[in-house]
Amino acid sequence: MTPLQNKVAELFENGTISLMIGYKNAINKLAVPCFIDHATQVEQLIYTPECKGNLSVYLHKAEIKQAKKIGILANIATLRSLVQLTSENQLSDIEKTVITINAQNEVLVFDNMEKVEEYVQANFPEYTEEDKKLLEQLNSMTRAERWQYWSEQFAACVKCYACRAVCPMCYCSSCTVECNQPQWIKVSSETTGNLEWHTMRAMHLAGRCINCGECGRICPVGIPVHLLTAQMNLDIEKEFGSKTGFSCNSGYALNTFKPEDKEQFIK
């Protein structure tokens, strides 16, 4: 048994957790989320570089919440989402134990969010090189070129809403696209309506997205949607100095006012 499996088994045995959200092996060497409710099942648990999925999304599910004592295996992005979700009052009714594996391959167990916050702040991730490059490319474009770029990308969108589904911050039980009085966003999938949808999503995630990049990774038609929210985050960090998924008690930059807030961004 791996140290992770041992640790989780121990948490089950001492009654700390009654449900563990982790990863198990899937075909094509991928990792699939698994939900285990007994120490005897811990042997399926893995932790590999393929464990990219953001498991915190599952904490919004009613079936999961029923479990009461939840253990969750979290990569750094998931840890950040937990911090951000806490700051947005989304996890207050969940008793959770957070397990992560650090760079030294040690299994760490956090029984409260202060510790998670501390760990996240000490290990705050940078943007990936690839994302940095892509953002640089986008920012070097003229406005017209950028518009062209995104229009082409969104022409392919089929509105499967997988980007929304995998996003830990998209926790609304009914999304704006599902409101039809008024109909904010067109239901059909065509370039303008798709742009509306993705723009709205980017605005709703501005300063809240925790840069896990899942939305871009899983898009079935390969649109790098995560770049939109990543750029919004950079802008907000620059203008208001606030980082997402960094502090459990930080207010939201876009609904709080500080006298020192800059206003140059209004053009």
Partner: peptide, 16 residues
Amino acid sequence: PPNFTSCTGCMLCMEV
């Protein structure tokens, strides 16, 4: 029920 409301309790409105 069980939705009660589409509000998700993010409390942003409360702050503003």
